[in-house]
């Protein structure tokens, strides 16, 4: 059975973070302005009140995960804790060609929800939907970075490959843009020769291989419950990906734009972590 997140309206656990923030969309802002606004992030609290759920509450949560919401810390409940929404604007997304999909004939049924329509036989993404999903994914990635998680960037696109590797290196994170050896995640101890720490989240900047098949790392990550962020084009199957970004994944411009966003989100997360560590020690 394939578990497919087809509709954004379907309340999954992801919507916990984003249910409140709807109408607070600011007009076009540039990146410089947002960097100033990072100072508006609330100072991290030293002693968080952590409530532990009772066994009966946990049992109930197995069927209704939202019942655990009161136990989740405040910063995780915030929709956009790192103020990332102001980074993203539709004009820039349009200029980066994020709206361009593939030909209609190649459209995957599970990607219909993200489309605005069709022009000259080409699928066009609804950038408002894309924006919402980008902010969601960026918030998640920033939280991972804020907790010292290992982030792995994966792409199969040859044009943006060197850029991805460079960005990952600059961030102190990891990249995998080459042939995926079977079992890299699931059989890592055998392949590496030692038990290693696996990535805590994987960001797919393209999810199809050159044979138009889903990237083998998606299934491996799903087996190990490693959360994934995936840029899904109109011809890809969004199955098994945790956070979707419906957008064009084929042009270097779009990859560069998305990388810039991820870079800023991770930088903010890491800055937060540094601040927190300084307060604690």
């Amino acid at each position: 059975m394939r578990r497919v997140f087809t509709s954004p309206a379907f309340p999954s656990h992801r919507s916990l973070f984003l249910s409140r923030q709807k109408a607070t969309t600011s007009a076009s802002n540039t990146l410089q302005q947002h960097q100033q606004s990072t100072s508006s992030i609330p100072a991290p609290s030293i002693h968080r009140d952590i409530k532990v759920p009772s066994i009966s509450a946990l049992e109930k949560a197995s069927t209704q995960s939202t019942s655990l919401k009161p136990y989740v810390s405040e910063e995780l409940q915030a929709d956009d804790y790192f103020n990332l929404e102001s980074l993203v604007n539709v004009k820039e997304m349009f200029d980066a060609r994020l709206h361009l999909g593939h030909k209609i004939g190649t459209l995957n049924d599970n990607m219909k929800w993200a489309l605005y329509g069709e022009r000259l036989g080409i699928c066009i993404f609804d950038l408002d939907v894309t924006k919402k999903f980008i902010v969601r994914a960026l918030n998640f990635v920033a939280h991972v970075a804020a907790r010292g998680g290992i982030i792995l960037f994966v792409t199969t696109n040859r044009e943006s490959m060197l850029n991805v590797e460079k960005t990952a290196k600059e961030l102190g994170e990891y990249s995998h843009c080459r042939r995926w050896q079977e079992g890299t995640l699931t059989n890592s101890a055998q392949l590496v020769g030692a038990t290693i720490r696996l990535p805590d989240t994987i960001i797919f900047l393209s999810t199809l291989t050159s044979l138009n098949e889903p990237h083998p790392a998606i299934i491996e990550a799903a087996k190990l419950t490693i959360p994934t962020v995936g840029v899904v084009d109109s011809n890809t199957d969004p199955a098994y990906l945790t956070y979707l970004i419906p957008a064009n994944d084929d042009t270097p411009q779009s990859a560069e734009y998305l990388l810039r966003l991820f870079k800023e989100a991770i930088t903010r997360g890491k800055a937060y972590r540094k601040k927190q560590q300084q307060l604690e020690f």
Binding site: R14, V52, V72, R147, G148, D200, T201, I226, T242
Partner: peptide, 26 residues
């Protein structure tokens, strides 16, 4: 104790919290 709670409440999202959280509970 806290690990299953975090798993089920936030799904994969907070998997990496595991180490820290178990340290707290201990």
């Amino acid at each position: 104790m806290l690990r299953p709670f975090l798993r089920s409440s936030l799904g994969n999202a907070t998997r990496f919290l595991g180490t820290e959280a178990s340290a707290i509970s201990e």
